[in-house]
């Protein structure tokens, strides 16, 4: 399949990964995102199964954009925030649609941020923006690096602002991201990076 050509005209996508200490950051960033953001925002966070509803209702109440459940095989829609469900890995099909996978945990995690980021790197290439937040686990660093190697834009939370700085530090040890950002600046940064990418035709 002519995957290389398709990616150029594909929808843009924003992926945010985080673990311990990331909820507080999300509660700062999500309410500040512009209502006309021209990309979907996908959240992959570590939490216990069964806590889906709680996180969703908390974020729904605060975010500027609608928060929706992920349906497998659905195409992510711009201006919508999606939360990766507990107990599944979130992948992207070659056409950019969501896929779910309940296979082995990766980095003791399901969903694993690495798995989603690696898959987004393959499916979205330079059309993806990846952000790695606070966390006590190395998950996400390798995947964010993959996104960068596939031409994607990478953002790591400034470890000095992270409640648990292990996750962002792991990423910074592995490679130099495009941006190191404080939570207060992230919404503006995401918005301007999305605008920089050409709109799909």
């Amino acid at each position: 399949m002519a995957q290389g050509e398709k990616i150029e005209t594909r929808q843009r996508i924003v992926l945010i990964g985080g673990s311990a200490g990331s909820l507080a950051v999300l509660l700062v960033v999500l309410p500040l995102l512009p209502r006309d953001l021209a990309a979907p925002v996908i959240l992959v966070t570590h939490r216990h199964s069964g806590s889906d509803v709680l996180l969703e209702s908390l974020l729904s109440a605060r975010a500027s954009l609608p928060v929706r459940d992920i349906e497998e095989k659905e195409m992510p829609q711009p201006g919508v925030i999606y939360i990766a469900p507990a107990d599944y890995h979130l992948l992207f099909e070659p056409d950019g649609s969501f896929a779910l996978d309940s296979s082995e945990k990766v980095n003791y995690s399901r969903p694993s941020i690495d798995v989603t980021f690696e898959s987004a790197a393959r499916a979205y290439g330079a059309r993806a923006i990846g952000i790695l937040l606070s966390g006590a686990n190395a998950d996400g660093a390798q995947g964010l690096y993959d996104m960068q190697q596939h031409g994607g834009t990478t953002i790591v939370q400034d470890p000095a602002t992270a409640e648990v700085d292990y996750m962002p530090r792991c990423a910074l040890q592995l490679f130099s991201p495009a941006h190191i950002a404080r939570p207060a600046d992230m919404a503006q940064l995401i918005s301007s990076e999305v605008s920089k990418m050409q709109a799909p035709n």
């Binding site: 095989k73 992207f92 896929a99």
Partner: peptide, 9 residues
């Protein structure tokens, strides 16, 4: 089979 998962496997 769904492609993304098969690729991973």
């Amino acid at each position: 089979y769904a492609r993304a998962s098969l690729h991973r496997r």
